[in-house]
């Protein structure tokens, strides 16, 4: 767990209100670079809201979310950046982004945070390969001189497009979808669609990949394959992962760091082992009222 030594994302005091409803209440946590950080909690705990705040789909009511590229020191720069009206800062060794100030597409394009969705959002009428090409829109757009160069058929664009196809092929092989590259995405079975969504997110070249319930609806074998894929993304590509998941076999096996939410409030934060034994987590999942009841439950389950 590298949350302290090498953070990539620091979420501070994030609160999200929808009218009178407080979906996320004063949430702070740090995700480490090269870690798989899991965000868990019962249904309706506010996990997806946190994701939507991080990826710019919601603007948090209160709070700050700082993401860094490279080795820029967050502590010494974040206050300085907050005082300006800008959303990012280039310093020695890297750059710092304030995600709450950025529009959703900029979070992906500039801060390099990619995400998947709880209910899969593929371009179902486009082929698998096209889905991955759309993910590389921004570099291809530059290579095509904002369409003008591509329109007259410049060679530079042609070569860049070939590169993009190679990147897509790499991820298709990695997610075992290469044989279905020319099929419409809507034709794939559910498990393949989940993997395709991850491959598509990875094609944007992210530093932080946010996965919203990637194992939902997968069978045990597919879950194991997913574990291997996520580990490979972390180890071979150095992409940090932030994960919402209900499937504890996935969470406990692959996470380096677990944050638990209940009713929008953080109730636990630590390694999987620590969280597993946290009485408040057990209470939240099993529905106990107070400490004494928690102790009774613990005694019952033999902790």
């Amino acid at each position: 767990m590298r949350a302290k030594s090498d953070p990539i994302l620091r979420v501070e005091n994030v609160t999200m209100r929808f009218g009178g409803l407080v979906a996320v209440n004063d949430l702070s946590f740090v995700a480490g670079r090269g870690d798989i950080t899991a965000l868990i909690g019962p249904n309706g705990a506010g996990k997806t809201t946190v994701f939507n705040c991080i990826t710019g789909f919601y603007k948090p009511t209160v709070g700050r979310m700082a993401l860094r590229h490279g080795n820029i020191d967050i502590d010494s720069h974040v206050e300085k950046l907050t005082d300006t009206s800008r959303d990012s800062l280039n310093g020695t060794g890297g750059s710092l982004f304030l995600l709450e100030r950025m529009a959703d597409f900029q979070v992906s394009a500039r801060a390099k945070v990619a995400r998947t969705f709880q209910n899969i959002r593929l371009f179902s009428g486009m082929t698998v390969l096209e889905n991955l090409m759309v993910a590389q829109h921004n570099p291809l757009m530059v290579a095509s001189n904002w369409t003008l160069g591509g329109l007259i058929g410049l060679k530079g664009f042609h070569n860049r497009e070939k590169e993009a196809i190679e990147t897509a092929k790499y991820w298709l092989e990695k997610t075992k979808l290469i044989d279905r590259a020319d099929d419409p995405a809507g034709d794939l079975p559910y498990g393949d669609q989940r993997r395709l969504e991850i491959a598509r997110a990875m094609c944007t070249g992210p530093v932080l990949l946010c996965l919203d319930e990637p194992a939902a609806g997968l069978n045990p074998k597919e879950s194991l394959e997913l574990n291997a894929l996520l580990r490979s993304i972390r180890d071979d590509h150095g992409t940090s992962i932030l994960l919402i998941e209900h499937d504890m076999s996935v969470v406990m096996q692959i996470s380096d760091h677990v944050v638990v939410l209940d009713y929008g409030t953080k109730i636990s934060d630590g390694t999987p082992e620590e969280v597993k034994n946290d009485p408040r987590v057990i209470a939240a999942y099993l529905g106990a009222e107070d400490e004494t009841e928690v102790q009774e439950i613990e005694a019952e389950v033999g902790l």
Binding site: T55, F57, D104, F105, Q106, S108, A109, R110, A114, R115, F117, R121, L122, F123, V134, A135, H137, N138, R200, A201, T204
Partner: peptide
């Protein structure tokens, strides 16, 4: 929405 999540 997927487009925006891909930085478009």
């Amino acid at each position: 929405i997927a487009c925006r999540s891909l930085g478009i």
